[in-house]
């Protein structure tokens, strides 16, 4: 099963919210939909779920027009909500039956998922009597009760403590293993890194980065290296690189243990290794290790979104000057 989103555009009034969103995801894989608040992630998901209609673009499932009511979908919306004054099991069965599951299967599935999420003792309790975390787990169980082929989770970890987050992580991994399509929207990059093979970063309604996460990381780390010294004095090391190796690399950042550098255009790793060995000895700096930089998704996100923001600011400033 392959779900494709092609060039989706959406405006609310005069404001263009989505400016051509494209991505695809296959069975047994998870796609991470990332972006800052207001970037357009939830709007994209709502269009996928036919809550909103797109102004243009197509959504295809195995090449055919996608109708969310004809495919079993489990949708966990960002705006959580069930019936506070109804019994947990009763409303789970109801939601499954709305999706066309027969009563017996709906009841069996409900109990199965309540057990899996460790909240089966609340099956006959009113939802409002449960803690927020348990309500969140009931909501997730309701999402999965119809045994969906496609699972869309919008910020699934918000409101969960570390123990419950671990349970949810395990559940999501199991779903991926059994061949479900998982679309995952979150601000918590560490979770996205754990589940998602592919990512899409949306900023101001546009995709600014998409593709296989490993390749993206590789590409980002390709011309960057991390360097550390034996004495652990990062400011001394940084000053040394900036003063003595500026003809080969530029410093792009410092993390807890390393200085991160980027090769200047036309320079190679071999040139850098040779230069740092010679010049560090002269400055009496003992290099502990250097290796290829492996950026976290968070680093990539911050850098990419930051670049976009800066670019936009510059454009706006130039526009302003032109107007003047």
């Amino acid at each position: 099963m392959k779900l494709e989103v092609r060039n989706i555009r959406k405006t609310f009034g005069e404001k263009e919210i989505l400016k051509g969103i494209n991505f695809e995801v296959e069975s047994g894989k998870a796609l991470g939909l990332l972006g800052r608040n207001g970037a357009g992630k939830t709007t994209t998901i709502r269009i996928l779920m036919d809550v909103f209609h797109a102004n243009s673009g197509d959504i295809l499932l195995d090449g055919e027009k996608f109708d969310p009511r004809k495919v079993m979908i489990g949708y966990l919306p960002e705006e959580r909500g069930l019936y506070p004054k109804r019994k947990v099991l009763e409303q789970m069965v109801y939601l499954a039956r709305l999706r066309g599951v027969d009563k017996k299967t709906a009841t069996e599935n409900s109990i199965k998922w309540l057990k899996r999420l460790e909240v089966e003792e609340y099956a006959t309790k009113d939802l409002e009597t449960l803690s927020k975390g348990n309500q969140q787990k009931v909501q997730l169980a309701s999402t999965l009760v119809s045994d969906p082929e496609i699972i869309i989770l919008d910020e699934p970890f918000s409101g969960l403590d570390p123990v419950n987050s671990q349970i949810l992580k395990d559940v999501v991994n199991e779903l991926i293993e059994v061949g479900k399509i998982v679309i995952f929207s979150s601000h918590q990059m560490s979770y996205v890194e754990e589940f998602c093979r592919d990512i899409v970063i949306i900023n101001h309604g546009e995709i600014i980065l998409s593709g296989n996460l490993l390749e993206i990381k590789k590409e980002y780390g390709k011309s960057q290296l991390v360097v550390s010294s034996v004495d652990g004095d990062l400011s001394k090391l940084r000053n040394f690189i900036e003063d003595s190796l500026s003809d080969i690399v530029e410093v792009t950042g410092v993390n807890k243990t390393d200085v991160i550098v980027k090769l200047l255009e036309g320079k190679t790793r071999m040139e850098f290794f040779g230069a740092i060995s010679d010049r560090a000895a002269k400055e009496r700096i003992e290099i502990e290790h250097f290796e290829t930089y492996k950026p976290s998704l968070n680093d990539i996100f911050v850098e990419r979104v930051g670049e976009e923001e800066l670019h936009e600011k510059e454009e706006n400033a130039n526009g302003g000057e032109d107007n003047e």
Binding site: M49, I73, P77, G81, P84, L95, L98, S142
Partner: peptide, 11 residues
């Protein structure tokens, strides 16, 4: 209670 989003995407 925000249950409407789940409902209208189900039926």
């Amino acid at each position: 209670n925000r249950s409407i989003e789940v409902l209208v995407t189900s039926i």
